[in-house]
Amino acid sequence: MVRRAGAMAVLAASLVVLCGCSPSSTRPTPTSEATPDAVPTATAIDPVRLAVDERLEAMTLEQKIRSMLMLHYPGTDPAPVREFADHVQPGGLILMGDNIGSSEEEVRAFTSALSSDEIFPLLLGIDEEGGDVTRLPWDELPAGSTLADSAPELTTEAFTARSELLESAGLSVNFGIVADVTADPSSFIYYRVLGHDPASAADRVTRAVQAESGHVYSTLKHFPGHGGAPGDSHSSIPVAGASLDEWRATDAVPFAAGIAAGAPLVMTAHVAYPAVDSAPASLSAAWHNILRDELEFTGVTITDDMLMLQRNGLAEFADPVENAIRAIAAGNDMLVYVLPADPGDVDIDLDALVSSVAAAIDSGRISEDAIDASVDRLLCLRFALGG
């Protein structure tokens, strides 16, 4: 995949205006009254809107659902990974440590061979925070454990350099900006946050988003905030005791700052704030409404790894199909699954999952208009990558 940072920066900056709404809502509305002496003017054709509308209209319902998945397939040989992607037709792939070769050149060769669609290439995501959460062995740049207590300018320098590493390796989405905030050293997320109070975290999150702009798509995580929710969401549903007003004054601040700085993606977390909703935020329409309406986020919402829900041992989340339906019904645009080579090993049947989501749409449990809006947002990101 050929990447042009300058073109991507310009086009990505316009995506919120062009594609941050439901499909075709930017088309001009014809008027019924004619002005006799008026000189007709040509309506400008927006190539982004035109390309996305045409692709969306050509997709079947099943293809739309598949495009809302970001999946993992292990290995550094691109051939089986591409075969998997061509068969399943996800909208993206997430690379883990088992996909990373020994050099930047190897990773770039790997990523450049994964997309068969040059106009709407796959979103290629990676968790590259630095420090404890590093997939690229040559990324020795400072992470939250250092940046939170350092001069803010170091955050700009670190994320500029890190995003350049990712771009050079052919990655397009970084799940690397931790917008959580906590001052508690015993917190699971403490050594990954960029600030230990809302204001300092917000400043560094803003800098990180600005630094990554034009190189990779930034993702803010873990919305609505893991800092006030004790426990590890990889194996439980951490519960935060904050009220909504307390959240607005604390955990919300870095997310609001990152959104204002232009972050195109927000990752929803498997954490619960009972004052808002007893369900984890990843499955909560209430939290998605707050994200869209209060924080005015118009970009792509994406879940944390959906397999984490199955690992917490709670019967409510034992069914991966039900989890997927709930996640999409709540308002997520994209679902992440860090799968093994055989998804059946984690009780996932991708074809059955897609069929079940389609059935939920047919029954009215999920709005088809919402599906179209989600796919529209995703296609806008992918089109920008196609150059």
Rank of each mutant, 00 (worst) to 15 (best):
V2P: 14
R4F: 05
A7T: 03
L15H: 00
V16H: 01
V17C: 05
S22G: 11
R27G: 12
T29N: 11
T31K: 15
P36C: 05
D37M: 14
A38L: 15
R49W: 10
R49K: 13
L50S: 15
A58N: 12
K64C: 07
S67C: 11
S67Q: 09
P78L: 03
I94D: 04
M96D: 09
N99P: 07
S103D: 11
F120W: 08
L122P: 02
L124A: 09
L124R: 08
G125K: 06
E128C: 03
E128I: 05
L136A: 06
E140S: 08
S145E: 13
S172I: 11
V173Y: 02
V181Y: 01
T182Y: 09
D184F: 12
D184N: 15
I189K: 03
A211L: 05
G225E: 00
S236V: 00
S236C: 06
I237S: 03
D245F: 01
R248N: 00
R248S: 05
V253S: 03
P254T: 00
A257L: 08
I259V: 10
P274G: 01
D277Q: 01
A285I: 10
R292P: 01
D293P: 00
T303A: 09
Q310G: 14
A318I: 00
D319M: 13
E322L: 14
V338S: 13
G344L: 11
D349N: 12
A352W: 05
D369F: 11
D372N: 14
C380G: 15
F383R: 11
